[in-house]
Design a binder for these strands. Structure first.
Lengths: 359, 359
DNA sequence: CTCCATTCGGCAAACGTTTGCAACAGATTA
DNA sequence: TAATCTGTTGCAAACGTTTGCCGAATGGAG
C-alpha cells in the first residue's frame, strides 16, 4: 500500500531549515527497530552492548535528542518541576531558586519558576495551571490557607518550604531556633525591652519567630513589643523607625533583613546611633546584610540547602512512604548592628560603656 | 472485537487517586466527538456557540485540563520558553526574570529559568539541552562566543539581551548612553581624572561602557584609568580600593552597582570620605543601591522592560520578517555618592568646598 | 422544487515515544 | 536428544491531542 511509502518523505521542519531527527531515523540508520533505539536510552541493560554502542554512535552522529513531549505523553512523567515563590525579586529567594534549579538539572529535571507577587489567589491559580505539566511543585513560603494547600496536594505532588502542615512533606528552616538565639544575644547584651518588627500576616515563619521571641523574652522577665503585621520590604522597616523609638525599646528583631536594613538606615538618618543607642537584628542573611554599615547582625538561613533538599524530597516522593519533614538549622551571625544595652553586665563591656550601666 | 471494549476501563491514575480527565471524557459526557471538544478549545470559531458552551460547561465540571505534552507532540509548539542568565543570585537579574515570567504567563507560556554560573561552557550545554523542549530561548548577557551563538540559533529561536550580534534579534540597554551621562556628570562636578572599574572579559556591556567612558573623557581632555577586568561582584570592588586610591583619581565609574558598593564601603572603611574625597558611580540601579549610605549614584537599566520586550520579540518571531534590535534607554540617577571634584566650578559649590578649589 | 453555498461535526491519521508480549537463537540442564 | 532458560530483538498498541477531509443539514436563490 502506498501508505508506507510516506516514510521519510513526510517530515516536519520545526524551526525553519532544521529537521527534527527522531528515534525512527536513528533506527533506520543503524539497522535496528525503533524499540531497540528507545531501549538504548531508557533501559540500556536490555540491549546488547555491541548494538547499544552502534546505536549510540549513529544517534550522536545524527544529533538525535529524545522528544520530551512524546516521552511525557506515554510515561506520564514530564521531568519538569515547578517552583513557586512569593517574589523573585526578594533577595531571600534567588539563592534558593538557584540551588534548586542546579540540583534539579543534575537529575535531568527542568524547573519552571513562577512568582505570585505575594498574592494567595495568584498562588492558587499558578499551582493549578502548573499541576498537569510538572511532576511536582515546590511551594516556597506559601500564603495560601492550609485548606487550599490540602486541596491542591490531591492534584499534584507537593513539597512545602518554610511552612509546617501535618502530613505534608516539608523542609523548614528552624527560624524559631535562630530567633531564640538572637533574643538571647540581645538579652545577654543587657537589653530588657525588645521590639519584634513583624512580617506579613499568613506567614508561618512570622508566627514562629514571634512565638520564639515572646517565650524567650518572657522567660527572662524582659519585655517584648510586637509591631505589625507589615509587608516584608525595606520601606516598612524604615517607616517603623518612629514607632520603634516611641516604645522606648533598645533592641529590635526584624522579620527579615530587608526590614532590618530599612529600619537601620532610617534610625541613622534620624541621628540615632546603631548599635550605640539601638541594636538591630535581622533574619535571612541576604547578601545585602554584609554590605550595609554597620554590618547587620542576623540569622542565617540555609536557603541553598533548603532548595536542594526540597528537590530531593520531591523526586523521592512515592518511592518510599510519606516523606517526612526536614528541619534545617539556622544560625545567629553576630556582626556590628548589635551592642550593649542599658543593663549590660560590666564584664562584657569596655570602660566607656560600663560607666553608664545602671544597677 | 474485545479490543474496543477497553474504552473507559483502562485509565491511568497519574497521581494516586486522581484520574486524568481527557478530551475523550468530555466528549462522551457532552455527547459530541472528541474533535469538537478539541476545536472548542483550539479553534472556538469553528464550533456552534451552543455546542461550545455545552462542551465548556462539562469540561469545567469534569475539571478538564488540556494535556500540553500531547498538544506539543502534534503541534510542535511547547508553549514553554527558556530564560538563561549568568547568575540568578546576581541582583541585576531577578527583576528581569520576574518581568519576563509574568509577561510570558499572561500569554500562556511558561518559563524555564536556568543559571550558567558565568560559565560559557555550561551556557552552551544548557541552550542545547533546552533547545528541543522550548519554543525559544532568551539569552541574557551571554558569555559565549559569537560563533557559538550563531551555531545555536540554527537549532532554536533566540533573542539576546544585552549583546549585539548582527542579524540576531536583540534587546539591549543602552549603557553607552548611561555611561556617557555618568562621565559627563562627573566632569561637570569638576573631576579630571576618572577610573573605570571594569567588568568581566567577554561582556559586551563592559566593552560598551569602556568605549563610551573613554570617548567622553578624552573629548573633555580629562584622564581615564581602566582597572580590570574583574568578576562583577562586591568583593572585587572592595579589593580595588587600594588600586583606585593609588591612581590619584577622584571619581570612579564601576561596571555595576555591586562593585561600586564594595568599593564604596572599602573606601569608607579606610577613612576615605565618599563623596567628599572620591565620587563613586555604579551601573544597574539594583535595589541595594538606594539602601547603602551614601546612596549610590547610578545608571538605571530598564530591566523589567527588557524582559517583557524580549518575550514579545521571541513570541512574534517568525510572524513577520527579521525582528530587529531594540535599544532601551538608560538614565543616570544622581544620589549622594557623587560630589564636587578638585576642579569644580565655584557656582556649583557651597562656600566650604569652594574654598578648596584650585584654579 | 432544485441547486448551491455555508456551517457544523465526525472520522481517522499523525505526532515520537514506551512497553508488554512474543519470537528466536544459543546455552544449559535433565 | 529434548526441554528449559536467558538474553536480545521485533511487533504493535497506546498515550491525548490536532487537523485535513468529507458528509449532513440548513437556508436562500433561482
Amino acid at each position: 500500500m502506498a501508505l508506507t511509502e510516506r516514510s521519510g518523505s513526510h517530515r516536519i521542519a520545526i524551526k525553519e531549515g532544521t529537521v527534527a531527527v527522531t528515534i525512527r531515523d536513528v533506527a533506520r540508520a543503524s539497522g535496528v527497530h525503533i524499540s531497540t533505539v528507545s531501549r538504548t536510552f531508557s533501559a540500556p541493560h536490555l540491549v546488547n552492548p555491541e548494538t547499544r554502542s552502534r546505536v549510540l554512535a549513529t544517534a550522536e552522529q545524527l544529533g538525535y535528542r529524545p522528544n520530551r513531549a512524546a516521552r511525557a505523553l506515554i510515561t506520564g512523567r514530564t521531568h519538569n518541576i515547578g517552583l513557586i515563590v512569593a517574589d523573585i525579586a526578594n533577595p531571600f529567594f534567588p539563592p534558593l531558586i538557584k540551588a534548586a534549579e542546579t540540583h534539579a538539572r543534575r537529575r535531568d529535571y527542568h524547573v519552571f519558576v513562577a512568582d505570585t507577587d505575594e498574592d494567595p489567589i495568584v498562588e492558587l491559580d499558578l499551582v493549578q495551571a502548573l499541576a498537569k505539566q510538572v511532576d511536582g511543585i515546590l511551594l516556597c513560603s506559601p500564603r495560601m490557607s492550609d485548606d487550599q494547600i490540602e486541596q491542591v496536594r490531591r492534584e499534584v505532588p507537593l513539597v512545602v518550604i518554610n511552612r509546617m502542615i501535618t502530613g505534608l512533606p516539608a523542609v523548614v528552616m528552624d527560624v524559631g531556633h535562630g530567633a531564640r538565639e538572637a533574643v538571647r544575644h540581645l538579652l545577654d547584651l543587657g537589653h530588657r525591652h525588645l521590639v519584634y518588627l513583624a512580617g506579613p500576616r499568613g506567614s508561618w515563619t512570622n508566627r514562629e519567630i514571634r512565638r520564639a521571641a515572646g517565650a524567650t523574652t518572657r522567660a527572662a522577665g524582659a519585655e517584648l513589643t510586637v509591631l505589625g503585621p507589615n509587608q516584608p520590604v525595606e520601606e516598612t522597616g524604615a517607616a517603623a523607625a518612629e514607632a520603634v523609638l516611641r516604645t522606648g525599646a533598645t533592641a529590635v528583631l526584624a522579620y527579615n533583613d530587608l526590614m532590618a536594613i530599612g529600619l537601620l538606615q532610617a534610625l541613622q538618618d534620624r541621628g540615632v546611633d546603631v548599635p550605640g543607642q539601638v541594636s538591630v537584628v535581622g533574619i535571612d542573611d541576604i547578601a545585602y546584610s554584609g554590605l550595609v554599615r554597620p554590618r547587620l547582625t542576623t540569622v542565617a538561613n540555609p536557603t541553598a540547602t533548603a532548595g536542594r533538599t526540597a528537590v530531593d524530597m520531591l523526586l523521592q516522593q512515592g518511592d518510599d512512604g510519606p516523606a517526612g519533614q526536614v528541619t534545617l538549622r539556622t544560625d545567629l551571625i553576630i556582626r556590628n548592628s548589635t551592642g550593649p544595652g542599658p543593663y549590660a553586665p560590666a564584664v562584657a563591656l569596655n570602660a566607656e560603656v560600663a560607666a553608664t550601666v545602671k544597677e
